[in-house]
Amino acid sequence: MTRKELVISNRLGLHARAAAKLVQAASRFHAQVIISTHQMSADAKSILGVLTLAASKDTPVVLEVDGPDEAAAMKEIESLITSRFGEE
């Protein structure tokens, strides 16, 4: 399992479109992807789960990726978050 701490840095936080992008990215991999804030954890393949995290800008999150393709999955999701989901 790989684990990484990141910060949600896009202006709108994990709102619908960013959440959808995260879910779409996570769903491309076999690995299980868990995203957690201080309060709760969610399955990153579930739009519902991700939205209920309600992670706004500057929220620290922990990504835990577990599975055969975990390295690739972590790389992709990390770059999505650090690139602020393509928002400006």
Binding site: A16, A20, V23, Q24, S27, D43, K45, S46, I47, L48
Partner: peptide
Amino acid sequence: FDAYAVILKDPAL
């Protein structure tokens, strides 16, 4: 339609 698809595929659902 894309929003629909994301919801339909939701593993939590």
